[in-house]
Design a protein around this nucleic acid. Structure first.
Length: 580
DNA sequence: AGTTGAACGTCTG
DNA sequence: CGTTCAACT
């Protein structure tokens, strides 16, 4: 249970990263979290098994974001449950059932909002839902794999065997698994924070120097993980201290017993199993098309490995990995059991190479959502800036000022770019889309920011992938083609109205533009205290404030600033106290 | 100071 | 499922 406490302590070795820094790379994606988030918006339909595709849409938007930046995604799905985890699964299933019952009751009473909340807690990402997404992925020629057991282990395998360059997930378990490069908290703009295993020794908040991989793993298990509850009172700090002193879990447990602490008789055995589960969990090897162990069993061949789950014969392995065989029942999944949205079966074929340049990925993002001022890494994310950039670009009076200039600039830039990828350009509909863009749609933040950040590319030195020439490649899968044209019109006008209410945006914009350059170069939490950071947080606060008081449009920028400045400085004070 | 548990948000119109 | 905050040891 203490294992999620690990991430906050690693902030000093986390660095901001944008997906575009991974151009040309491939990444494994923990699909569960995407599906789950996407399912929230249509949880009621899903619980009632009513046809919906919003969760699939959500995932496809993110997939397209990755492809847009020239990153090849491999979506990884969870497979069967490990025997050790059954307890938790039962618990969760029970909780879901309760919430579903509550939801139905609330609904019958006419309390729709309460019902809606309960439905959200009742959503289960069932194999059926995953299968719906898989159908679309097949159509779109996007790589995916269903893990025989846990996605965490599968993704780590893909990373260790160099199938992928990084893993996108929210799960802290990837660290004890030993995954070399992880991207956490990737938002809908492609901005996230990067963790590299090799930097672990340089963590400021937890002295890990001299720790081997094995010691880190044992520390994590000791502090409590999915496979083994921690001893009462044992958290991360104590686990760290013990491992530092005694190096191995055997010696730690011996010492604990010696000190008169009650250790359950099965604890030591369970501990051993937990270690083996992290090290040798069954995963699918796409090369041999067979099930292998995450790392070789060499020394432990004679172990009784029942807790790793039943072994899977080779003839089933490929079927499970491709989603054609249910990992639980081992039965073939009948296509007609699942109603898949009649996707745009295309008049044109589109493989991964059907990149098109020039257009934007839908408008996934503009509206400033409720701000999560997660001062996780001691500064507001770049997302805040992007949110902020958006309104500035859109003109005050969209109908009068034909903001062609900036759009034009980008389009022409595209044309100038040598098409060294296997890019398709200018498919017929692209031109149509451009027209829509020119007249109505403010520039997509991704594009805008991409351009803007060309000048200050100080981030990318971090990891070895050499960047190729910048080129705003946009991938729009056919999956969304049919939707875009109609939707764009109404939504954009709406947005322009709401964004351009007053001079507010402009005023703040000018106040902030000078900061942008500095922003990107500030990477480390140690520099938190600089004024730049302070002001950045104010910026993001501004938006949260703005959302909350959208009824109060006439309040001046000044006031908004002074309000937020105070509260932000409180936050910073707290942070500084904490960090000492 | 560290651990634990409960409460809350995740998305979207 | 993760983060945050308050309470307990």
């Amino acid at each position: 249970m203490g294992i999620q406490g690990l991430l906050p302590l690693l902030k000093s070795v986390m660095a901001p990263i944008h997906i575009k820094d991974l151009e040309g790379c491939s990444v494994a994606v923990d699909t569960y979290s995407w599906l789950h988030k996407g399912a929230l918006s249509c949880s009621m339909d899903l619980c009632k098994s009513q046809p919906t595709s919003k969760h699939v849409d959500y995932c496809m938007h993110r997939v397209n974001l990755l492809r847009h930046y020239g990153v090849k995604p491999i979506l990884v799905f969870d497979g069967g449950h490990l025997p050790m985890k059954n307890e938790q699964e039962i618990k969760r299933a029970r909780s879901r059932k309760e919430n579903l019952a509550r939801a139905i009751e609330h609904e019958s009473c006419g309390n729709t909002s309460a019902a809606y909340e309960c439905y959200q807690k009742a959503v289960d990402i069932s194999p059926t839902i995953a299968y719906e997404l898989i159908q679309v992925l097949k159509q779109e020629q996007i790589s995916y794999v269903v893990a025989p057991y846990e996605a965490d282990a599968q993704m780590t395998f893909l990373a260790l065997s160099k199938h992928v360059d990084a893993v996108i997930t929210e799960d802290s378990d990837l660290i004890p698994f030993g995954c070399p490069r992880i991207i956490y908290k990737m938002d809908k703009f492609g901005q996230g924070v990067e963790f590299q295993y090799s930097r672990l020794q340089h963590t400021k908040d937890l002295n890990l120097s001299g720790f081997t991989k094995q010691m880190i793993l044992e520390m994590c298990i000791l502090s409590g993980c999915d496979y083994l509850q921690s001893l009462p009172g044992m958290g991360l700090k104590k686990a760290h201290a013990f491992i530092k002193k005694f190096k191995t879990h055997e010696k730690v447990i011996k010492h604990l017993k010696f000190s008169g602490i009650v250790v359950p008789p099965l604890y030591e055995e369970s501990f051993r199993r937990a270690i083996l589960t992290f090290l040798h969990q069954r995963v699918y090897d796409p090369v041999t098309e067979d099930i292998v162990h995450l790392s070789d069993l060499s020394d432990n061949i004679d172990e009784d490995l029942d807790f790793l789950g039943p072994s899977i014969p080779k003839n089933l392995a490929k079927g499970i990995a491709s989603g054609d065989i249910d990992p639980f029942t081992k039965l073939s999944i009948q296509g007609d059991c699942v109603k898949v949205k009649p996707g745009p079966h295309l008049d044109r074929t589109y493989d991964l190479k059907s990149f098109k340049s020039g257009d934007t990925v839908k408008k996934l993002d503009l509206p400033a959502q409720k701000n999560l001022l997660t001062n996780y890494f001691c500064f507001a994310t770049l997302e805040a800036k992007r949110k902020f950039m958006a309104p500035r670009i859109s003109p005050k009076h969209p109908n009068e000022i034909p903001q062609v200039d900036k759009t034009e600039e980008i389009v022409s830039e595209n044309k100038a770019i040598p098409i060294n990828h296997q890019l398709f350009t200018n498919l017929p509909f692209v031109d149509n889309m451009r027209k829509v863009q020119h007249s109505k749609h403010p520039i997509h933040p991704c594009i805008a920011s991409q351009k803007e950040s060309e000048s200050n590319s100080s981030i990318d030195g971090i990891e070895g992938k050499t960047r190729v020439q910048k080129k705003p490649i946009i991938v729009r899968s056919s999956y969304f083609q049919h939707k875009n044209l109609e939707e764009n019109n109404e939504e954009n006008t709406k947005m322009n109205v709401s964004n351009c209410d007053d001079d507010d945006d402009v005023a703040v914009a000018s106040k902030n533009t000078c900061l942008d350059d500095v922003h990107v170069s500030v990477l480390h939490a140690s520099e938190v205290k600089t004024r730049v950071e302070n002001r950045k947080m104010i910026t993001s606060r501004y938006f949260s404030q703005k959302n909350q008081e959208n009824t109060n449009e006439k309040s001046t920028v000044k006031r908004k600033f002074s309000i937020s400045e105070d509260s932000v400085q409180k936050v910073i004070k707290n942070m500084m106290i904490k960090s000492k």
